[in-house]
């Protein structure tokens, strides 16, 4: 009985969150719509740019339906949006959605590789720090981590270029090889960009995991594992890590938004043809509809990921699971 009641609560809770997500997404579309339409001066001229002919302007006017009311314009824009029509770039004539979709995989690959690298750095550091909490090693790593968080990402990117490509000459600073030209060559072009994100990101993950590990290591079942005569590494990896990793995994999801910002800088610096670079190039070129499309896709992706993580958290929260278990 209690379990069904609990499930009922859970469903209501998730439903409310889903509704909230929808409202926020709607608000995001409204704001991005207004971005272009609240421009000072005639929108058609702004979008068309200085080289636009009278025909161009007329075409833009017609396409945007500028003679109608703002709400009507928004509604029809939203309608086209649902069908995947974000307009065309006034620079290349390419459909905005197509341009974004072709760049999206690069950004996603960058984010995934940098998160994995960050995890690879954070995991051993957190295990060592938690196992020997309060020791010199722990204090050294924790202090180093604190200092690292004061390094802006573009400085970190510059430092990795300086070290690995100027001083050590291991990898070129820029240049991108698509996946079709070979997996290895493709991965190689991601090493430095991903590293410059990961070298900051690991601290965030390490701090969360370290503090959760320290709490876990005080649990009775860890004492029990020691009483089994298991070696420390086995206790850390098999008994302590899993119950402690929950918050860190959530944080990894929530960090996606921040990393999207980092990606803009890193992609520009390393000349990776991703979403971030597309956005910056569009801004330089004053390609309004492209900017609008990028912002829309990035923001909707961001809120959706955040909400998904939030809902997963609710679903997997050990306390809620335990309550359900007690009910059965």
């Amino acid at each position: 009985m209690t379990a069904t009641w609990g499930e009922h609560l859970l469903v209501t809770h998730l439903g409310r969150k889903l509704l909230r997500l929808l409202l926020v997404v709607l608000a995001v579309t409204a704001v991005t719509f207004l971005m272009v339409h609240l421009l000072p001066g005639d929108v058609a001229y702004t979008i068309g740019g200085e080289t636009a002919t009278a025909d161009d302007i007329r075409a833009i006017r017609e396409a945007l339906g500028l003679d109608r009311s703002m709400l009507a314009q928004y509604r029809s824009w939203l309608g086209r949006l649902v069908h995947g029509d974000l307009g065309r770039s006034y620079l290349t004539g390419e459909p905005v959605l197509q341009a974004i979709l072709s760049r999206l995989p690069v950004t996603l690959e960058l984010l995934v590789i940098s998160q994995l690298l960050a995890l690879a750095l954070a995991l051993p550091a957190a295990l060592i720090c938690a196992y020997r909490s309060g020791s010199h090693v722990d204090r050294l790593i924790s202090t180093g981590g604190f200092a690292t968080l004061s390094i802006p990402s573009f400085v970190m990117a510059l430092l990795t270029i300086y070290l690995f490509s100027v001083k050590l000459r291991w990898l070129p600073a820029t240049g991108y090889t698509p996946l079709q030209a070979g997996v290895w060559a493709n991965l190689k072009s991601f090493v430095l960009p991903a590293l410059s994100i990961a070298l900051i990101e690991w601290v965030v993950l390490m701090r969360v995991l370290r503090s959760d590990l320290i709490t876990t290591l005080q649990q009775h079942y860890i004492l029990m594992a020691k009483a089994k005569g298991l070696p420390p590494w086995r206790i850390l990896l098999l008994h302590a890590l899993r119950p402690s990793a929950f918050t860190m995994l959530t944080v990894m999801g929530l960090q996606v938004g921040r990393l999207l910002g980092e990606a803009v800088i890193v992609e520009t610096l390393f000349a990776l043809p991703g979403m971030g670079r597309l956005l910056v190039t569009a801004i330089y070129a004053r390609d309004h509809l492209m900017v609008q499309g990028c912002v829309l896709v990035i923001s909707i992706g961001y809120v959706t990921v955040n909400s998904a993580v939030d809902m997963l958290y609710t679903l997997l929260d050990p306390r809620i699971r335990r309550e359900a278990a007690v009910g059965t």
Partner: peptide
Amino acid sequence: FQDPMTALNPV
């Protein structure tokens, strides 16, 4: 151990 509720690994 004394408390079997906490002595076994929950996960």
